[in-house]
Write a protein that binds this DNA or RNA. Structure first.
Lengths: 110, 110
DNA sequence: TTGTTTGATTGCAATATTACGATAATTAAT
DNA sequence: ATTAATTATCGTAATATTGCAATCAAACAA
């Protein structure tokens, strides 16, 4: 089907999955790393940085923006993107929580 | 195309994306959480815990196993799964590193 | 106005993912 | 040997994702 049955999972589980999908593609990983590296608005540089066509980058940026992880501001003919640090922190908290499950001292069993 | 151009990204970027995809679906999030909660081998319980058909669960388990995040051991007619804590720790290190980017005190710009 | 630049959108093709019924494979029990 | 229990695999359908050429839209410059 290609369609996840989100209704049988908790909101938290769906949220974790959604955020994880955001950087479940190397292009988006690369975009986010670049924005962090620059640590300010990036206007028009992104397509040249990543080796993908402009419409493809635009699409990845749209996804990241819809999730709120980045924001874009129009500056003349160009659009400047940057990390939304508040949202990033919120996501980090949720995913870190998930990654830190299982504090037991038990070794891997079996 | 539906085919990620992995060759233009670094191994690290591809690795982050691969791990992120592992829990980019709520069913796999749910499976992993369940295995952590039990904190031992789970033999045959998983299909009843998650509301998906047996072949679907089997497929998700296979993906997690291929990544090394879980391991399955045959016990009679059933298979017992558990978290591979070493691999989990390795993944956690990689993803935590990614999530902790951007320590600058600058607020979100723009 | 006309052109230029930049980024978004549209349309499409190819591949990937998700889900499940049917069936196979394995082991244990009778 | 049969049967039951459990999980894996196959086949298939539906939807999602990725990527790009072509095009559109907005803002600026001449």
């Amino acid at each position: 089907m290609g369609l996840a049955k989100t209704e049988i999972f908790t909101d938290k589980q769906n949220e974790i999955a959604l955020f994880a999908k955001a950087f479940g593609h190397p292009a988006r990983v690369s975009i986010l790393q670049y924005l962090f590296k620059i640590d300010s608005c990036v206007c028009g540089d992104i397509v040249n940085e990543i080796g993908l066509a402009q419409p493809t980058i635009s699409q990845h940026l749209k996804e990241l923006k819809q999730l709120g992880l980045i924001q874009g501001n129009v500056e003349g003919t160009s659009v400047c993107y940057c990390i939304n640090k508040e949202k990033w922190a919120a996501m980090k908290a949720i995913l870190t929580d998930f990654l830190n499950q299982g504090h037991s001292i038990k070794p891997t069993c079996c």
